[in-house]
Computed example of a mutant assay.
Amino acid sequence: MANTIDLHTHSTASDGLYSPTDLLQQAQQAGLKVLALTDHDSTEGIVEASEAAQRLGVEFIPGIELNADVDRSEIHVLGYYLEYQRPEFQSILKTLRDARVSRGQRMVELLNEEGINISWDRVRELAQGAVGRPHVAKALMEAGYVQSIPEAFDKYIGNGCHAYVPRYKLTPEEAVRLINSANGLAVMAHPITVPGLDELQRWLPGLQKAGLVGLETYYGPYTHKDEEALLSLASRYNLIPTGGTDFHGPGIHPTPLGGRFVPPEAVERLKALAASRRGKTPPAFELPAPVEEK
């Protein structure tokens, strides 16, 4: 069965390799009918992507991806159908993006201290939009220290490596509530990539209470067994099973754009829920103070 939906993609507005326009052109060429742009901590690519989608006849969903921390693991939370123009929401995103800049600068400093000579100016040039670790990884590749982005994470900037620097920390519940503050729909991204099913089941009740509405069930490398387990959890907690490729561009994730089947029902359910919230006053959200690193 041909796939026509991808609900997890990134552009140069965060750490993707393609501009929003180029991403939509590739989506059309891949036969996609529906695409969500879910850049990290940024909605800067949404207007361009939306305009390109209209020209190309692709249904577009404005989205975002927020990173959160729990029990020394990461949880990523996707947001769909955001009222992203809300000033309070944009102010918080700017704070998160500014923290990414500080984080990236510190990573470069730590690499330089180890004799790994890349420049912060080059990382910024590579980023174009919000800075992310893939931009540091690409600078390492350019300088000849690694042959691939995964190798850069494994050797230098992944969790536990010398040049790893923690992010501005949100809890998963805070990430869900931040998305809700823009009347968005919060969906847990790649839910068993890091924590595993046992921990996932422990976290889901609290996340659902915070406002989680979906579970990314159809994801990149997930097996049929993974899908079945996640579908069971989604049914138990009345969550919408969604899916996507986490597409950033060649060499970052193995699944090509549109390369994972996503049932049309996922979009139908998200769209209906978004319509039920439209025009309502969303709950307020206050960004917590950053945690001081030791």
Rank of each mutant, 00 (worst) to 15 (best):
E113S: 12
E114Y: 12
G251N: 11
Q85R: 15
E227H: 15
K94H: 15
P290W: 10
I157S: 04
T255H: 07
V146R: 11
N183M: 06
M141I: 11
E216A: 01
H8V: 00
L32N: 09
Y222E: 07
Q128W: 09
T255S: 06
V146L: 02
A68V: 01
G214Y: 05
A182D: 05
L66Y: 09
L24D: 00
I75W: 11
A182Q: 11
Q147R: 15
V262S: 05
E48S: 13
F261M: 08
G214S: 05
E174D: 04
A53C: 03
A234E: 06
D41V: 03
E125G: 04
Y168N: 08
L215D: 02
G115S: 06
H135C: 03
L82S: 10
V58C: 13
P254L: 11
G132V: 03
H224N: 08
N238L: 05
A210Q: 05
M107N: 06
S276L: 04
P283R: 11
V146C: 00
R278W: 10
A229K: 15
P283Q: 14
A36Q: 06
Q28R: 15
V101T: 14
A68L: 03
V267T: 00
R72N: 14
D22Y: 12
H253G: 11
L56W: 10
G258W: 09
P290Q: 14
E216D: 00
K94L: 15
L82W: 14
A27F: 03
E109I: 01
D69P: 07
P263R: 13
E265G: 07
E292G: 14
Y164P: 04
G144C: 07
N159M: 14
G279E: 06
Q85N: 15
R72H: 12
Y145D: 03
L23Q: 08
G220D: 15
V194T: 15
E174R: 12
D246A: 02
T95H: 09
H190D: 01
A68R: 11
P256D: 06
I75T: 04
E174F: 04
G45Y: 08
F261V: 06
P191D: 01
H8G: 01
I192Q: 10
L204F: 02
Y168L: 06
V70Y: 13
G57R: 10
T242Y: 08
Q208T: 12
A275W: 14
P263V: 00
R100M: 06
A68K: 11
T242N: 10
G249N: 03
V176H: 14
L231M: 10
E286I: 13
L93E: 01
V70P: 13
I157A: 01
P241E: 01
L35W: 10
D41P: 04
K271I: 01
G129C: 05
K155H: 12
L215R: 08
S276N: 09
A130G: 04
K169L: 13
L233F: 00
K33D: 07
E48L: 09
A234T: 03
L111T: 02
G249V: 00
L78A: 03
S232A: 15
T9Y: 05
T21G: 11
P241G: 02
A2S: 13
N183Y: 09
G258L: 07
I92W: 07
G31M: 01
D6M: 01
T95D: 12
Q25P: 09
S148Y: 06
V123N: 07
N180D: 15
P250I: 05
P134K: 03
A127K: 14
L200K: 09
L200Q: 09
G129M: 00
